[in-house]
């Protein structure tokens, strides 16, 4: 049943051309970068309302133009490179974070597919796919690319000849070595059930409405994946890398201007990627058959994004040793037990 549906979807769609993929890549870059800027605004507003403040109010209606003001500030600020830093690595590090975040988005279905209307010159009738690069091992690729993204903070911290930076880099390493196991093991149980690593197959597996969503079959894996995802995107309660109260700004201490901004674009793009994975793997994804499928997945992604802000407003930070304790002594055994139970049920 699953495979026939997936094949049906594949054969039903028009041919994907390189122009379509190029347009898709440009769309992802433009829209996600803009969303990252908008994300900072939403984050400040949501946090403000949860803490009974107003948040940004002065620039434009309800402070909406604050994004533009912040953007102008970031672009025009002087790009300072510390004297004793390893200059090349210092300059490359933010690019790694931003680039890997967008490369990860290449294998994720981000927006619905569409065909450019034929009255538009040059590009008319071009089919723009929903996934820029539909790998049949999509989930692994995305997780691997997001893992590579942590080289950004690591190299930034190590290259800047700053004690806070090196503490941030050390924390990056331990955070990566802690959560990585949990991410992989937690998502393994759903992969076993679906029998595929492709996002399209995951979507097809849950095509029969809310009752067939993976979250009902794998609630433990869902919670574990969310917790590991928070660690992966450096969100509170696991934002050890740039914990203001302890390490000034951690790996980002010496950064300013657009290089600093690139870290944030990468972080917000990663938040969106984790939201997309959670929505597709556990919450049914996009409903390919109905006409509002694109709307439901947008709502699911928005919900997970909001959840990250909500958790930030509600929970305190954890210490690095608490994170390691949590990941290795609680979450990893839970994930292994979950896999064992799933395997036993599947064998029976």
């Amino acid at each position: 049943m699953e495979t026939t549906l997936a094949q049906h979807i594949v054969t039903d769609l028009p041919q994907v051309t390189w122009i379509g993929v190029l347009i898709k890549a440009i769309l992802i870059l433009a829209i996600i970068s803009a969303l990252a800027g908008f994300g900072t605004f939403i984050e400040r507003k949501v946090l403000a309302f949860m803490q009974r403040r107003l948040g940004p109010m002065h620039v434009g209606p309800y402070g909406l133009l604050q994004i533009a003001a912040d953007g102008i500030k970031l672009f025009t600020k002087e790009d300072i490179i510390p004297q004793n830093a390893n200059k090349l690595i210092f300059m490359i590090a933010p690019v790694i974070t931003a680039a890997t975040a967008f490369i990860a988005l290449a294998a994720v279905p981000v927006f619905p597919d569409f065909t450019i209307p034929s009255w538009i010159p040059l590009l008319g009738d071009t089919f723009v796919p929903s996934i820029a690069s539909d790998l049949n091992i999509g989930i692994l690729f995305v997780l691997g690319m997001m893992a590579a993204g942590l080289y950004g903070p690591l190299l930034a911290g190590m290259s800047q000849a700053n004690k806070w930076g090196i503490i941030g880099a050390a924390r990056t390493a331990i955070q990566f070595l802690s959560y990585e196991v949990v991410t992989g093991l937690s998502i393994l149980a759903p992969i076993m059930l679906v029998g595929s690593l492709s996002f399209v197959d995951f979507n097809a597996y849950q095509a029969e409405g809310i009752g067939s969503w993976m979250i009902w079959q794998q609630p433990v894996a869902f919670v574990l994946f969310l917790i590991a995802g928070f660690a992966e995107t450096n969100r509170t309660p696991f934002d050890l890398l740039e914990h203001e109260a302890e390490v000034v700004s951690g790996y980002a201490t010496e950064y300013s201007g657009m290089r600093w901004g690139m870290f944030f674009i990468g972080e917000y793009a990663n938040m969106i990627t984790i939201s997309v994975i959670a929505a597709i793997v556990f919450l049914g994804g996009y409903d390919a058959a109905s006409s509002i499928g694109w709307l439901t997945i947008m709502l699911k992604i928005a919900f997970f994004f909001f959840l990250m802000l909500w958790v930030r407003a509600a929970w305190p930070h954890v210490r690095p040793d608490q994170l390691m304790w949590l990941c290795w002594k609680v979450l990893m055994p839970l994930a292994v037990v979950n896999i064992l139970i799933t395997a036993l049920v599947m064998m029976a």
Binding site: L150, Y151, L154, M158, A169, A170, A173, I174, F176, L177
Partner: peptide
């Protein structure tokens, strides 16, 4: 990443 932590 583990090698980096030793280098550090």
């Amino acid at each position: 990443m583990a090698l980096y932590s030793f280098a550090m």
